[in-house]
Design a protein around this nucleic acid. Structure first.
Length: 297
DNA sequence: ATGCTAACCTGATGGC
DNA sequence: TGCCATCAGGTTAGCA
């Protein structure tokens, strides 16, 4: 579930169903799913087993589970098609099940309520995502894994620095959508929410960042936060069963999208058909009337 | 130093 | 029915 709202939906599920439980066993069924864990699958399993899982955290599209009693965290990235599912142990394996994590309380007396008897599964069709174990940044209050120290804070983080973001945009010689997708400038924004926020701000995706005024950047940030908050309230955006919460349920924000995926459909502001343009091996959706292209440089 | 492309995967879909 | 090309919500190594 690639973008911030979808990952946050998963984080909330993990907090409810996984945090506080103790790992009984780890089974890695596909080595690619732990390729970011340099010491390999056996090491990953060994170091995790026996430890209690702390409060699930997130920055941008990354989430992690602190490993209590060891300065470690399980870092997770869902890539394009990853899912973290909390499933009953007797549920048949999913076709693309990559990692299974069992807990000491299951099966067992319902000490943990509905969570008892469930396990955590990492399912990933395209294997762009994965889990890994990493040390934490010394002094970081939330146990930030060291390998994602370069990832910028996300726009829903209270510590996100709006002024610094604007200064960074002015310094860059790139275009606004590229900047929004650059996770070292602002994290959590992907192709869907970039297009949605640009549509709401009436900005063309190829607008040079150096031409943005401070008020314009402020508007853009406000719209990013607004669309992400709206999506979160709807349970995230799903076009198909690949993007689901830990219980396998899809969000329904896709019906509220104004630009993304709406090629040839009327702009909800002015009625002009939304256009799709090939862009960086993917697509950009925009309203040609509301979002005028910048002057050629 | 910075910006950009190609590559990493599997599966769904549409045209011929 | 099959084959091929295209597309999909992300990240990163490596090149210019």
């Amino acid at each position: 579930m690639p973008e911030l709202p979808e990952v946050e939906v998963v984080r909330r599920g993990l907090r409810r169903w996984v945090s506080g439980r103790t790992v009984a066993f780890v089974e890695v069924l596909h080595p690619r799913a732990v390729r970011r864990h340099p010491a390999g699958a056996a090491d990953f399993a060994a170091r995790l087993t026996g430890h209690r899982i702390g409060e699930a955290r997130r920055r941008g599209k990354y989430l992690w589970l602190p490993v209590e009693g060891a300065d470690l965290a399980v870092l997770a990235h869902l890539g394009m098609s990853g899912q973290l599912l909390v499933q009953p142990q007797d549920m048949p394996d999913e076709k693309h099940l990559r990692i299974r994590i069992g807990f000491t309380d299951s099966p067992g007396p319902a000490a943990l309520g509905e969570a008892a008897g469930t396990e955590l599964r990492f399912v990933d069709q395209r294997t762009f995502g994965g889990l890994s174990l990493h040390g934490t940044v010394p002094g970081a209050e939330d146990g930030l894994p060291d390998v994602i120290a370069h990832i910028a804070r996300d726009p829903l983080d209270p510590a996100f620095d709006d002024a610094a973001f604007h200064d960074a945009l002015r310094r860059r010689r790139t275009t606004v959508k590229r900047a929004l997708l650059d996770q070292s400038l602002i994290s959590g924004v992907g192709n869907i929410y970039a297009d949605e926020a640009l549509w709401r701000t009436r900005l063309h995706y190829e607008r040079p960042t150096a031409t943005l005024t401070r008020p314009r950047t402020a508007e853009l940030l406000a719209h990013i936060r607004e669309v992400m908050t709206d999506a979160l309230a709807a349970g995230g955006t799903s076009f198909d069963s690949l993007y689901v919460n830990v219980n396998g349920e899809s969000g329904y924000f896709s019906r509220s999208l104004d630009a993304y995926g709406r090629e040839d459909e009327p702009c909800r502001r002015c009625g002009t058909p939304i256009r799709r343009r090939p862009w960086m091996n993917r697509s950009s959706y925009f309203c040609p009337r509301c979002q005028r292209p910048p002057r050629p440089r």
